[in-house]
């Protein structure tokens, strides 16, 4: 297992370098420079030249890349490792570390909520296959899965915040109520619901299919034949095997815990990394875009690895 993980990590190195080179190239080849906003005629050419030198924008591109890449990995010790944001001059690392808890909170809560709903719903549908409950839930799943996230988010916001005024419109806290837990929970409800509708719709379908597959197997019939009650057959014997594919899904979802959900965060102005990335692209804030892209890519690679490893952990038939 350890050699497998090490091998996978080594295999990931070229991909990490690939992501770095391409993100860097993409971000720096876009027209327009962060300095452009100072070219108003009121800033002296000397100041502009100084700014270009301070930001290192006068260096050849490969040199800029190597500087940035080697610097990038010193982030645990160095708050300037990811450079300074072009919009407010703060170190990018601190900006991102500051946003990460919000993303983690939003994505973590919606992951837990989605799992807690999707697993029982999937089991119910599998056990009562083709019943009315199954059909109705399937219909809702199909619709939930088809709705664009931002559309669903806007509708929930329109209904619960604007019309009914039950829940806050945007943000993580009401102004001046930072750290107020009930206030934050009220702010969490809508974004979490938006994310949960889409993932529950997808996951409960997996759970249903996986449970149906397991219920057809001989050992489940044996368990029934020896007189075990339905709760025990399903809860103990079938469930554990039916959860195996869900564990893989879980591994693939974990990266989003840190990279966030750009669209949902934007709809609800949730101060997480997803929204930060969207804002940074709009502001041409290269260092922030780069850092967010790198984190996103890294999380996907780790998530794939995690999914494979978890699969081996829960399914002893798999050897590496």
């Amino acid at each position: 297992m350890v050699t497998y993980i090490v091998r996978r990590l080594i295999q990931a190195i070229p991909i990490v370098i690939g992501i770095s080179v391409i993100s860097f190239a993409i971000v720096y080849l876009t027209p327009g420079s962060p300095i452009d906003k100072f070219r108003t005629g009121r800033v002296s050419p000397q100041t502009i030249a100084n700014l270009i030198r301070v930001y290192g924008l006068d260096q050849p591109l490969p040199v800029q890349f190597v500087n940035w890449f080697t610097h990038f990995w010193s982030f645990p010790f160095n708050s300037t490792a990811w450079g300074y944001s072009f919009t407010d001059g703060l170190p990018v690392r601190d900006k991102i570390f500051g946003r990460a808890p919000s993303t983690l909170l939003l994505m973590g809560t919606s992951l837990v909520v989605s799992m807690l709903l999707a697993i029982p719903i999937g089991i119910l549908q599998a056990v009562k296959q083709y019943s009315w409950a199954d059909r109705i839930i399937t219909t809702f799943e199909t619709i939930g899965y088809a709705m664009p996230t931002f559309w669903l988010g806007l509708i929930l916001k329109q209904f619960f915040s604007v019309q009914l005024k039950w829940l806050p419109l945007y943000g993580q806290n009401t102004l001046g109520k930072q750290g107020d837990i009930p206030d934050m929970i009220a702010h969490l409800i809508l974004p979490v619901s938006t994310l949960a509708v889409v993932s529950v719709a997808g996951w409960s379908r997996y759970m249903r299919a996986s449970m149906l597959e397991v219920l057809r197997q001989d050992y489940v019939r044996t368990a029934r034949a020896k007189g075990l009650g339905p709760a025990r057959v399903i809860g103990r014997h079938a469930l554990r095997n039916a959860l195996i594919p869900i564990v893989t899904l879980l591994g693939l979802t974990i990266p989003t815990l840190l990279s966030g959900a750009a669209i949902t965060e934007t709809v609800f102005s949730w101060p997480g990394l997803g929204w930060l990335g969207v804002q940074a692209v709009g502001d041409r804030d290269y260092p922030v875009v780069l850092a967010v892209t790198m984190i996103g890519g890294m999380m996907v690679i780790l998530g794939n690895l995690l999914a494979d490893v978890l699969y081996g952990v829960v399914d002893p038939r798999i050897h590496y």
Binding site: I15, I19, I22, S23, I26, S259, A262, I263, G277, V278, V281, G282, V289, V292, T293, G296, G297, V300, I301
Partner: peptide
């Protein structure tokens, strides 16, 4: 592995 939305934007 690329964050699709950000790259496309």
């Amino acid at each position: 592995a690329f964050p699709f939305l950000l790259i496309v934007m």
